[in-house]
């Protein structure tokens, strides 16, 4: 119990410090590496919270692919972030307000880890039961992902597909030979 708490506290401290470092740093490479580290620590956090599938995904997608993309993009971008002239007061204030609201509302949220919370009483037990009886595979996450909420996953596949197509369309090389300036078939003529 104590060890769990210690690990948790340790990870949270790291995450907070990374987040604060991100506000401070203005070097792009640090930013990217810190983001990657943040994802990785978040993945560890997910493991302590029993979410192994999520941790796996976060580690491979959040810390892996995202970082590769950031690094690949970074190669073409300025290496330093400039200080902005405009004030950061309004964004900071609105963040503080939103955070305040969240903390205010947290008193009515169920306590962490309580089995009696509605979230654990409603629906979730049926998944656990059903995964064994209706579907028959041990990984409940997979059965929820692919069957009970299979449509979400379909949508998500489509999101990935959308992003892929979008990036391909955006970063496509232009034909150097002919610039696409084809003439409209509509005719305009000067009226003398």
């Amino acid at each position: 119990m104590i060890s769990e708490l210690l690990i948790n506290a340790f990870l949270v401290t790291i995450m907070l410090s990374i987040a604060i470092a991100l506000i401070k740093t203005r070097t792009v490479i640090f930013t990217v590496i810190l983001t990657s580290a943040y994802s990785l620590v978040a993945a560890l956090m997910f493991i302590t919270l029993d979410a192994v599938d999520v941790a796996f995904t976060e580690a491979s997608v959040g810390a892996g692919i995202s970082t590769i993309l950031f690094l690949a993009a970074m190669a073409y971008l300025p290496k330093k972030e400039e200080k902005s002239i405009s004030s950061e007061f309004v964004p900071a204030l609105s963040c503080i307000i939103l955070g305040g609201i969240l903390i205010w509302c947290s008193y009515d949220l169920p306590e962490i880890g309580q089995l009696t919370a509605p979230i654990h009483q409603h629906i979730a037990p049926e998944y656990i039961k059903g995964s064994k009886e209706d579907i028959g595979i041990p990984n409940i996450v997979t059965s929820v992902l692919a069957s009970y909420r299979g449509y979400d996953t379909f949508g998500e596949t489509i999101v990935v597909f959308t992003a892929g197509v979008a990036v391909l369309a955006l970063l496509q090389k232009k034909d150097p030979a002919k610039k696409n300036k084809s003439k409209p078939k509509q005719k305009i003529r000067k009226n003398a």
């Binding site: 009515d108 949220l109 919370a117 509605p118 979230i119 409603h122 629906i123």
Partner: peptide
């Protein structure tokens, strides 16, 4: 998420 947290649905 908040609503899910308090209702479970």
């Amino acid at each position: 998420g908040l609503l899910y947290g308090i209702t479970g649905t």
